[in-house]
Amino acid sequence: MVAQALKIIPQQAGSAINIEAVSHRFDLEGAPLPVLDDIGFDIEPGSFVALLGPSGCGKSTLLRLIAGLDHPAQGHIRVAGAEVADPDPSRILVFQDPTLFPWRTVRANVALGLEAQGTLKSEGHRVDEAIRLVGLSGFDKAYPHQLSGGMAQRVALARALVNRPNVLLLDEPLGKLDSLTRLAMQTELTRLWQQSGLTAVLVTHDVEEALYLAQRVIVFGPRPARIVADLAVDLPYPRHRGDPRLAELRHEALGHLGLDSSW
């Protein structure tokens, strides 16, 4: 069903992302708290990259910088060659919490982007397509409190996809789901990404999730975040969770996180 619905989504060009010598710090009770330390890497247009790292190292901060919600203290972030200055619907961040607007129905939540950009009248059909895409047809009139956690997260995904972004930034979007829904959503995510051609950047705690989904996994060290490894996951899609190569890579990634003794 999902595959069928996906045919409606036209190919969209993913954008390249260049992160150049980015450092960032926060003010915590007057004392500076360095969070990102001279981070630099490039992301190919249309690729799927996962960011892995210990809690509190600055992964969410980096995504917010790419989204344009904050500005880096030092360094440059360019998307499709242009310096990121402000949030833009071509780069959409999906938060860990679905954070749907409780006073809007599912349909109105998904439509928000088009409404804000003033294209709802001409592009309204995209709303229904996006809802179908995440498998929530029939729930368009439901309010967020009537949805399960997994459904809410899918609405958040549809709310992002309806804008046909070139870059999709995912901040642990599956973190709060039960393990079964999580596995199903992982498969859906890869399909969505493959069909749409957008650039996907996924932040996750889950090493297996990162390896199963992404073409490339960037591992950060503890705060202030520095890149400690950049692993290529050279496996074709669809992937199999039991693949011995994934197990190898997992061992390697855990080693970089300092957790290999538990393996």
């Binding site: 919600l69 949030p87 833009d88 619907p89 954070t99 607007f101 804000a116």
Partner: peptide
Amino acid sequence: DYYEIARTLGASPLFLILRVAVPA
């Protein structure tokens, strides 16, 4: 977060007031 989500979706300041702040 409501404001930030709306802003990434392309909301103008007026939209943020009328469609996010006021209903909330």
